[in-house]
Structures are given as structure tokens and as C-alpha cells.
């Protein structure tokens, strides 16, 4: 509660506008915002607004990836120098396993969300932790792949695009893991993560977003190898 919000049980101040013009009465029942004071905090965001804002943000964020994808496709189809000398292409097997793990973690995080909705906090933590483990597996797997690649960031436009795309995506995976860790810790204290918890839904949405981006990225870089 902030200093501006009226504490519950404060004796009502005599209204200069009279009881028949109670301020709440002018707010229509369908109005979602600041009408009759449920869930609104003067200095925090309304929970529903958070989701709206987050979806707008994700839509905008996806356009960075779209720009990078378009850049990649343009280079790939038109650059006179693509693969650096001595590089045949990318190994697909390990990244494919990585992909399967990451994509199936979307199902697992959905199970976590469902468990939370059914108020089974223990089950929620288990699924949540499993999602984190799968995400970590992906990041570690990609780090190992990076170490064994025969080209670097500065080896032509192929190397630069590859590392920029996978690196930028990897940054999103790490962000997702950090957010999940945060909510895991919060779930240990009662009352901080609620069944209708918008935070968990937002993190989950972010995770699905990261997965979808990866699928496109995988198709673009690993599947589409021939020019």
C-alpha cells in the first residue's frame, strides 16, 4: 500500500458531493481500470495491464528477430562470399537434439502453469525446475557447439550472421532462465506466486516466444544449408 491509497477501515470522510453521487457509482461495471479499486495500486501496474504491455513488448521484440532473419536470408541468397574457406556447413545432429529438448520444454512449462492453476505448488515447482533444466541443457549444448565450430565471428558474413543470430537468441534463453529462477525463489514464500499469477503466465509466454523464434532460426540456419 502506498501512502496515497486509502487504508481499509478509515472512517469515511464526509463527502462534499453527497451520498447520491458516490464516486464509485459513476464508474460503469464493465470498466476495467481504476473504477472500484480492486487490484489497482497507485504506483504499481494493474495485473491485466501488465499482460497487455508484455504482449505488445513481445510483438515488438519479435521484429528485431524478423529483421535479423531477413538480413540473414539476404546475405545467404546474395552474398558473393558465404561460407569461409574450409567450412562445409553446419553439423545438424547435436543441434537437432538441442532443438527437441527446447521445444518440448514448452510443453513442460505449460504443465507447470496448469499445476499452479490447480494450486498444486509442489507439482508446479517440479515442472518449473524441469523446464529450467531443459533450458540450461540447451544453453550449455550451444556453448559446446560454439567452441567446436571451425569459424569465428570475424570469418566473413556467414560467421558474423550465425553468431549474431544464435547469440542474440541465446541471450533470450538466459533471460528466460533468470526469470524462472526468480519465480522459483518467490514460490518458496507463500502468497508471492498466486494461482492466477500473471508473472508466471508472462514468463511462460516469453518461453514459448523464445521456442518459436528458435524453430525459425533452426530452419533458417541448419536446415536451409544449400544455396
Amino acid at each position: 500500500m502506498t501512502s496515497l491509497s486509502q487504508p481499509a477501515g478509515t472512517p469515511a470522510v464526509p463527502s462534499p458531493i453527497g451520498p447520491e453521487q458516490d464516486p464509485g457509482a459513476s464508474a460503469s461495471p464493465g470498466h476495467d481500470g481504476h473504477g472500484s479499486g480492486h487490484g489497482h495500486n497507485a504506483h504499481g501496474a494493474h495485473a491485466d495491464h501488465t499482460m497487455t504491455g508484455f504482449v505488445i513488448f513481445l510483438a515488438s521484440e519479435s521484429l528485431i528477430f524478423l529483421a535479423l532473419f531477413v538480413g540473414y536470408a539476404v546475405f545467404k541468397s546474395s552474398s558473393p562470399l558465404w561460407l569461409p574457406a574450409g567450412v562445409e556447413g553446419l553439423e545438424v545432429r547435436e543441434p537437432l537434439i538441442n532443438t527437441v529438448v527446447l521445444v518440448s520444454s514448452s510443453l513442460v512449462i505449460w504443465l507447470a502453469e496448469r499445476a499452479l492453476h490447480r494450486q498444486r505448488l509442489g507439482e508446479f515447482r517440479a515442472w518449473w525446475l524441469l523446464t529450467m533444466a531443459m533450458g540450461t541443457y540447451f544453453v550449455v549444448g550451444q556453448a559446446i557447439e560454439w567452441q567446436h565450430l571451425p569459424f569465428g565471428l570475424a570469418s566473413g558474413v556467414f560467421g558474423a550472421s550465425f553468431y549474431l543470430l544464435t547469440g542474440f537468441h541465446g541471450l533470450h534463453v538466459v533471460t528466460g532462465l533468470a526469470l524462472m529462477a526468480l519465480f522459483l525463489v518467490r514460490s518458496l514464500r507463500p502468497g508471492l506466486v498466486l494461482p492466477e499469477g500473471k508473472g508466471v503466465i508472462a514468463v511462460s509466454l516469453f518461453w514459448h516466444f523464445v521456442d518459436v523464434i528458435w524453430v525459425v532460426l533452426f530452419v533458417l540456419t541448419y536446415v536451409w544449408q544449400r544455396r
Binding site: 528485431i64 552474398s79 570475424a154 560467421g159 558474423a160 549474431l164
Partner: peptide, 28 residues
């Protein structure tokens, strides 16, 4: 977001030796 993507590539070209926009490395 599109400007950001371009600016990040420019930063890499300027500071980390990539060749997104350098024809000599296959860039455009």
C-alpha cells in the same frame, strides 16, 4: 526493432571485426 538490428550489426562491424556491411567480407 529494425533500427536496433541494424545498429547492433554496425556496432559489431565497427568494434568486433565482423563484415555485415563490408563488401570485402561478403557483406552489403
Amino acid at each position: 526493432p529494425v533500427l536496433t538490428a541494424g545498429a547492433v550489426m554496425l556496432l559489431f562491424d565497427l568494434s568486433f571485426g565482423t563484415s555485415f556491411f563490408k563488401p570485402e567480407g561478403g557483406g552489403d
